[in-house]
Design a protein around this nucleic acid. Structure first.
Lengths: 136, 136
DNA sequence: TTATATTTGCAACGCTGTTGCAGAAACATG
DNA sequence: CATGTTTCTGCAACAGCGTTGCAAATATAA
């Protein structure tokens, strides 16, 4: 796994303690994390800084939003190949109704959208809901 | 289309003007509507009443949440067969990035989830994002 | 018409997320 | 290593969505 500080430098971001910590937390988590999830792991940090940090990382293609149908933004690491220009994701997200965790899942094929539709399609999100391993 | 007042009676809900109006608005809309969308169509109504009305309708199986990846709840009519006990939906939702509208779409097959997964699956949501007919 | 149960509107609140601004920190340069 | 410039952080204030408690108003059953 690439060093957090290296990732920051690669994207022309200044290496600060908040950014390094946030990035490490997201790297080492198997779940997508919200601003609040991160805040709870810090001793002291301004939540506004976290919102801005997450937005910056997302813009740079370091992390991506894990859409899970709740009204809270959660983020997970991007695969390599994502950039400021475009995100390369075609995976679904699993949301556990019980513990409210959200996971990226790769073993689901996201279907193609019928071409004849009247809609111009850019991306497709899939949210699988149910119970995770820990909660069964 | 069934009369709004009939639908309310069928679900043991009192027929009030707010409920009738809300239900008519949702029935006649091709888009999923938020509390705010509804409020703007009223002369005077308390937004809290709208939130409660929507929640009641959802619980009763009259309307369903149209998950669209934004942090705002939107609702559309349920198909017949939905009830307090269970909602019968297997359709995707289209969200237009340009006008922020959300539509129910029926011509997409939602894939089955692989059984061997460690997750216990209850429902699957699909969100298609892009540009709608009006916005192209 | 009246009594009861339900619904509505108001007030207050909590949570998520944003913007503006001043001080602090990172880092490039000499 | 000192300095100046750029960027980041933290504070304050705010906006929007949604919820809860309570009293007044309304729908319905009797």
């Amino acid at each position: 796994m690439k060093l957090a500080s290296e990732i920051l430098k690669d994207h022309n971001l200044r290496v600060t303690s908040v950014r390094e910590e946030v990035l490490k937390m997201i790297q080492s988590s198997d779940k997508a994390l919200s601003s609040n999830d991160l805040e709870m792991q810090f001793d002291h940090v301004d939540r506004i800084t976290l919102y801005r940090t997450l937005k910056t990382f997302e813009t740079k293609g370091i992390i991506h939003k894990a859409v899970d149908g709740t009204n809270v933004q959660k983020y997970a690491m991007c695969v390599e190949g994502c950039s400021e220009a475009s995100h390369q994701h075609q995976h679904a997200h699993f949301h556990c109704d019980s513990c409210n965790s959200t996971f990226c899942i790769d073993d689901i094929q996201i279907p193609a959208f019928p071409k004849q539709s009247s809609f111009q399609v850019k991306t497709i999100e899939m949210i699988v809901k149910g119970t995770c391993v820990e909660c069964r």
